[in-house]
Design a protein around this nucleic acid. Sequence first.
DNA 1: TTCCCAATGACAACCGATTGCCAAATGTTG
DNA 2: CAACATTTGGCAATCGGTTGTCATTGGGAA
Lengths: 339, 339
Amino acid sequence: MAMQAAGTDRPATIHDIAAMCGVAASTVSRALSTPARVNIRTRARIEAAAAELNYTPNNQAKALSSGRTGAVGVLVPDITNPFYFDLIRGTQLQLKAAGYTQLLVDTEESDEVEASSMEQLRKSADGIIVTASRLSDEALLAAAAKVPIVTINRDVVGVPAVVIDTPSATSQALDHLVSLGHTRIAYMAGPLTSQSSTLRWNALAAAAEDRGVDVRRLGPFAPKTQSGAAAADAAVHSGVTACIAFNDLIAIGMLQRLRERGIRVPEDMSVVGCDDIFGADFCNPPLTTMASPIEQAGRVAVSMLLAQLNPLAGGGNRSRSLMPTHLTVRGSTGPVRHS
Amino acid sequence: MAMQAAGTDRPATIHDIAAMCGVAASTVSRALSTPARVNIRTRARIEAAAAELNYTPNNQAKALSSGRTGAVGVLVPDITNPFYFDLIRGTQLQLKAAGYTQLLVDTEESDEVEASSMEQLRKSADGIIVTASRLSDEALLAAAAKVPIVTINRDVVGVPAVVIDTPSATSQALDHLVSLGHTRIAYMAGPLTSQSSTLRWNALAAAAEDRGVDVRRLGPFAPKTQSGAAAADAAVHSGVTACIAFNDLIAIGMLQRLRERGIRVPEDMSVVGCDDIFGADFCNPPLTTMASPIEQAGRVAVSMLLAQLNPLAGGGNRSRSLMPTHLTVRGSTGPVRHS
DNA sequence: TTCCCAATGACAACCGATTGCCAAATGTTG
DNA sequence: CAACATTTGGCAATCGGTTGTCATTGGGAA
């Protein structure tokens, strides 16, 4: 039997409710947010009126007066990189569960866009999750002083971070290749500004020395399938029998190029990717890769951020979380061919 | 030599600027938004002060008082579906170019989440782009009456829409298969609530009758690679020699399953997908598919929405835009094998 | 019955901008 | 030089809530 106020098309406000119940707007506000503060019967009337008017709070106004926006910004360098799909889904799920809204921003791999987005978000979000930041340590620290931040795959002392432990996985990958008989191996590096790429290379170089095998670094290559062609050519030219790519996009691009050139995978060249993104399981051949718990990383980052925002809720806010990875062996790696 | 006001850590407001220049806040507001309305020298002083204080407008407050939020909501049914990656990138680029912010929402293929998101967005966005809506025609029309909307791949009279012309592409796909000698063909349908799926089937059925070939409808199947297994089994069981899938995800899933079962593609079964998503070119075999100008569709949708928001700017706001498609033939289709 | 205190509800300031309206200052014209 | 038109800048209300403060009310204890 609920009837809308005739002609009133715009969304209902607490003032409409207040008028309908004959109370002050502040009472309505309290009834809805601090129920204990208001007589239970009054509250019932207010809630009924709210339901009848189909009331939804205006969170712009809410944010303005309370300072809390109920939103969290998520910065990704490239929205079309499948790696971020799962990440975004992870953050989205966890944020929604906590009643927060996700503001997704594509920073286009630019530190300037990243910086200006953070400045902007500082006022329209309660906190920010920054993935694979291109900013300097100083800039990141300065930003973290102004607004709660959690980084993903970017480790700076003083800034809470979720780090996917791909460096350790690269050692596993190396062991895998060594056990297949490979001794000449290449690392196809990612962007120079990528901390992840550097850390992986360091881990790889150290492990290679341990095992006494020859690992050289090639690149840098942009993290896109298109770069895979150049990477493949470089790998072939360098005379290695196996390579470990910065990520799956490069690896998949390499597979395509190697196929074009008639170089068989894994017979002539073994390829290992990183991340286990969408497509890694159905490319040709299916890609051996270091599987990252990407979606989970997104969820953990949100949890850490929310713990920072509501310190009361306990849950001891860790400042750093290392996500384990493991090697998933598929068809793109095989025994070295003794020619 | 710019110095920050000592100790003041919070973002500067127009009041800070006003105080620094000895004018009223409203003058600052005008100087920044309606420059012609203010003395050029005063404006210069204000701009200098704004720069010095590192001022950025608080768009929450801006939205509250002006009614314009400078944001556009984009609703997608499943953020992890690669089809939407390019779409999102398209909307993101065009929105950013126009100075708008994108609010991305994953409706989880649920009409209820979709409806509540729209109600929410109605207050925090100037307009909404709705992709592959699960809502009824009536609900969509009602929503469009309250807030500017542009739909993508959902055609309802009275609601501006961008429609990717996949129905016509399915006819091309059929012709392609017929020219390869196939006469028994299956359509692997998408969700029952998907208008696109229905339209494609109608176009396909009509074209099949024209050509005198047998096309049957199987499914429905969820638009995920996992559903491809069931789809593949159904196709094999039905005795067809070729099939046209609702989208690339199903098609790619089918390829995997067929491979598992030792059924060769395209020798034993030809498969056609739809959309040409990320991965369609490097799966095994590469997928013949109907290529959609997805990113462009996103951009056009934004243009149509912005035209609706700023009617003055001219640009004759079309209410419907049909995006052309074409068949991209790769390795998953081949001549029928006469056994 | 009286007194006191806790529970309750209303008022009003405030968040950071926009904007209608008016007054002061400026410039132009007869 | 007076009268008028035109800029230009400021006041104050407004958007939709939150929140500190205070007056009122009711109930329970003495």
